[in-house]
Amino acid sequence: MDDRDDKFEQQFKKGALEMVLLALIARRRTYGYEIIQQLGKIGAPLFSSTREGTLYPLLYRLEDAGLVAGELEATPGGRAKKYYRITEAGRAALKRRRAFWLMYKGCIDSILEG
């Protein structure tokens, strides 16, 4: 794979990861480490290398846009854990993005296979 292929893949992953995060948080309230673990399991091989430096800036963008809400909670061990839950605006955005994705996928598939 040359550099151009690598950039092409990075751009795709970056664009899709925001939607993937919304989908994961829509399933249930979750926190950063759990998201990284989920991406490692069900997001392999595309998103298994996602780390904090990629995840948190995207979560901030979603949080600042009002699509997810972060809540700091104390654990029984006395530590603070930050949970993310989807908001109503987030559910609506996910619905729109999913519809766009299906349309996009269908269009590209028909071009590539035609």
Binding site: Y33, E52, A80, K81
Partner: peptide, 20 residues
């Protein structure tokens, strides 16, 4: 402001890993 946010999240993330 963003650095403070990152600091809080990284510490919370590490705490979750320690808990695991």
């Amino acid at each position: 402001g963003t650095r403070r946010r990152i600091r809080t999240d990284l510490l919370a993330g590490i705490a979750a890993k320690e808990e695991a």
